[in-house]
Amino acid sequence: MTRSTSRLAAAFAAGAAATALSVGAAAADFPERPIDYVIPFDPGGESDVTARMQEPHLEEMLGVSVNVSHQPGGGGAVAWSEFQNNAEPDGHEIIGINIPHIVGQPIQRDDAGYATDGFEIVTWFHFTPNTLIVPADSPYETVDDLVAFAQENPQALTIGGSGTFSGNHLEVLRMEEVADIDVTYIPFTGTGPLPAAILGGHVGALMTNSMLGVQMEDEIRTLAVASEERVPALPDVPTFKELGYDIVGGTYRGIAVPEGTPQERIDTLREAFSEVNEIIGEDQVPLGFIMTDYGGDEAWEIVDQVYNNYSAFLEDADD
C-alpha cells in the first residue's frame, strides 16, 4: 500500500506542476468514486488488452478502482453513441476511442448516433501503424514486386484486413491511389481470423496492424510499415515513405470523456495515462506498438489529419 500512496503523491505532484493553477485543489476531490472505463469492443482485442494493462497502474495513480467494462457492437458505434447521449461529464466515465473509427463511421453512416467532435479527447495513448504482410513463401520480396504484379493484373491480387472502411481498408484504398493499382480488398471480422487467412493462402497479402507482423515473424514477411519512422519492434522493415510511397496511417487508440467535463479533471486523467504509458510501454513496444501522448489541440490535429487523408474515400462510400 505504501508503494501505491507514494505513486499517487507523485502523480498529483506531476499533475499540479504541469497544469498550473487550481489543479491541486481539483485533483484532491477527483476522482472521488470508481472510474468506469468502457471498451467499445469485445474482450480479448487490442483495446481490451491495453485497458487491462493500464487498469492496475491507473488504480495506483488515481487512488480509486477502475472498472473495465465492454459494450461491443457496430464497430464501436453502439458504445460511442450511448456514451455521448448518457454519460455524466464528471470525469468518472471514460471510454476508449479509436481512429479512424470515430472519424469514419459518422461520415459513412446516417445512423451512427454520435459525432466525431462530440467527445473531449483526453489523450491518444498509442499508435499501431498499418503494415503490409505477405506469407514467407510469397513471390513478392518487396513492395515494388507486389505493385508490379498488381499493375499487370488488375483486381487479381487480394489483400485481407480487418473490417470495411477501417484503418486497414482505408490504407489499401490509399495504396491503390498512390501506386496507381487496382487490388481486391477482402474484409474479415477483426484481426483474429487474419493469421489463418494468410497462412492458409486465402489472401495474397494482408494490410494489418504492426502487432501481427511481430507476432507472426517466423511465418510471414513484412514488406513495409505505414509510419513516419521505423517501428522499434520491426527494425528491419522499411517505411512506405522510405520506399517512395506516401502512405502513413494506422490506428490510434485513446481515451475520451463526455463534452463538458471540467478541464482540470481531463488534465488529471491525461497525466495518469501518460504516466501509465511509461510503465506499460516496456511491455507494449516490443509487441509492435508506438507509444504516444497527444492531448488537447494535438489530439484534434490528428483527427483532422485523418479526416483530410481519407474523407474522400469515405464520402464516396456514403453515396
Binding site: P72, G75, P187
Partner: peptide, 20 residues
C-alpha cells in the same frame, strides 16, 4: 447491424443501438 463485408449498417430502423 453492420454488414460483415461492405461495412454498411442494415435494418437498424434508424436506431443507433441497433448497429450492434
Amino acid at each position: 447491424g453492420v454488414s460483415p463485408v461492405g461495412g454498411e449498417t442494415r435494418f437498424t430502423f434508424g436506431i443507433p443501438a441497433m448497429q450492434g
